[in-house]
């Protein structure tokens, strides 16, 4: 039985990831990458909208996609902390995208074959898009990791910085996805000549509404227009 909170968590992961990736728009290292990140953000936003619509129906209080995105405070968001962290440099962003999209693909694969028909339909669409996100981010991780001394150093430090936040992805019912996820990540790390960080500190709480300050700043920017001009359209 799929619960409202589970669907909301997936929706929030996708929405917040989309917002962070969108921040690269006009700032990416090259034009093709600018377009790529905007397109990946759009995929994430599309999945988020479908999931919010479903979450609203499960909840049964008539909340719309916009209500979920623009009219909740930080404590009501159920995303993992990984997606809300600031973009950092390009290497940090690629590490975050690789870790998230590899998880999303495994999860969507499972949901696509699950008993909840609505979720299966959303996942069947999203998993093909996730495959492109994994491919794109892993190519960059390999290119930077196996590149110059400087790019290697920064890619490794990006991986080290966000690694602790990956543990939260595998809490609860997705615990058994960590093994196949690690196998995929290890393959990329090997090709990228990167070292997998040791497991230690594992920040948690996102699924219960406990977030870092980074989420509050993100929401302030994302929600300001809607809150200042409720119901605005163009």
């Amino acid at each position: 039985m799929i619960r409202f909170g589970d669907v909301l968590g997936l929706a929030d992961d996708a929405l917040i990831a989309a917002q962070r990736l969108g921040e690269w728009c006009s700032r990416a290292p090259e034009m093709e990458e600018d377009i790529a990140l905007a397109n990946i953000a759009l995929d994430q936003l599309g999945a988020a909208r479908l999931l919010f619509a479903y979450a609203g129906e499960l909840e049964g209080h008539g909340r719309s996609e916009d209500d979920f995105a623009f009219l909740r405070g930080d404590r009501e968001f159920r995303n993992v902390q990984l997606v809300e962290l600031a973009n950092g440099d390009f290497a940090v962003t690629m590490a975050k995208l690789l870790f998230l999209s590899a998880y999303q693909r495994l999860l969507y694969d499972r949901l696509a074959g699950g008993t909840d028909e609505r979720l299966a339909a959303i996942a069947a669409k999203a998993r093909k898009e996730s495959a492109y996100h994994v491919d794109h981010s892993s190519r960059w991780v390999v290119r930077l990791g196996d590149g110059t001394d400087e790019s290697h150093r920064r890619m490794q430090s990006g991986v080290d910085a966000v690694w602790p936040y990956t543990h939260e992805l595998f809490e609860g019912s997705s615990a058994d996805l960590r093994e196949p996820w690690l196998a995929e990540i290890d393959k990329v790390f090997a090709e990228a000549t990167l070292t997998r960080p040791a497991d230690g500190w594992a920040p948690t709480g996102g699924r219960r509404g406990l977030h870092t300050e980074a989420l509050s700043r993100l929401l302030a920017e994302m929600q300001v227009l809607h809150r200042a001009h409720p119901g605005a359209t163009w």
Binding site: I35, I40, D43, H136
Partner: peptide, 13 residues
Amino acid sequence: ELSRFGSTACKSL
């Protein structure tokens, strides 16, 4: 391939 993501989400360059 120049870019996996082209002018729209459905195209590559």
